[in-house]
Simulated assay, not measured.
Amino acid sequence: MSSFSPRSPQQPGQDPQDTSVGVLLATVTSDVQQLFRQEVELAKAEVRQEATKAGKAAGMYGGAGLAGYMVALLLTLAAMFALANVMDLGWAALIVAAIWAVIGAVLYRRGRDRMRTVSKPEQTIDTLKEDAQWARHPIR
């Protein structure tokens, strides 16, 4: 990326007062366009860098989720085999499965209750409806 450097609209040896308004306006417009392009490129670079960091973090969350799943699985097996010392292995597996069913049901109910409290973005929807109405009939 090149750095922004204002250009002089006059020729060497030319009096600054002799520069026309059109030339000045063209120079300013060109400089603003160049600055805008550079800002867009900077924004793209920053977004790419942040997206890379977010992707790595998401991968770590995925790994943590897999590790948590493995811990739950192994603790389930340990509980099942511990109960198998007191009763038949089939009954121990059934009891552990029932405990997981209760945990799943409780989590489902809590998630469903929380989901019911989520509302639509009413203000944004109203604004979009107004924009669509204005686009259909721009003069009012």
Rank of each mutant, 00 (worst) to 15 (best):
K56I: 13
G59R: 10
Q33L: 04
G63L: 14
R48G: 00
Q34L: 08
Y61R: 15
F36E: 09
G59Y: 03
Q34E: 10
A26F: 04
V47G: 00
E46T: 09
A51E: 13
A43K: 12
V47K: 14
K56T: 13
D31Q: 13
Q49M: 05
E46A: 09
L42F: 06
F36Y: 09
D31A: 02
T27A: 03
L66A: 15
L25A: 15
L66E: 12
K56G: 04
R48T: 11
L35N: 03
E41H: 09
L25F: 10
R37M: 06
T29G: 01
Q49V: 04
V32N: 01
A43G: 03
L25M: 13
M60F: 08
A51N: 11
A51P: 00
T52A: 14
E39W: 05
A67I: 07
R37Y: 04
T52M: 05
D31W: 01
K44Q: 15
R48W: 00
A26S: 11
Q38G: 10
Y61G: 00
A26I: 02
Q38E: 14
L42N: 10
K53Q: 09
A26G: 07
L35C: 03
A26D: 12
V28D: 01
Y69D: 02
Y69T: 04
A64W: 06
G65W: 01
A45K: 10
Y61N: 11
A51S: 12
E46R: 14
L35K: 09
Q49R: 15
D31Y: 01
M70K: 12
G59F: 03
G63C: 05
Y69P: 00
T27H: 00
G65A: 11
Y69M: 03
T27G: 01
D31N: 04
R48Q: 11
L24S: 02
T29P: 00
Y61L: 15
T27N: 08
L24A: 06
Q49A: 14
T29N: 05
D31H: 03
A64S: 10
R37K: 11
F36R: 15
K44C: 06
M70S: 06
A64R: 09
K44A: 11
E46I: 07
R48C: 01
T29C: 00
A51C: 07
L42K: 14
Q38C: 02
E39R: 15
G62E: 13
Y69S: 05
M60R: 15
L35T: 08
Q34F: 03
E39T: 14
L24Q: 07
V47R: 14
A45M: 05
L66K: 13
G68K: 04
T52P: 00
T29D: 03
F36I: 08
Q38V: 04
A51R: 14
V40C: 05
S30R: 10
R37S: 12
E39L: 15
A51H: 08
K53H: 05
A57I: 08
G68S: 08
Q33R: 09
K56E: 13
G65T: 08
Q38L: 13
E41F: 03
V40W: 01
G62Y: 07
L42M: 09
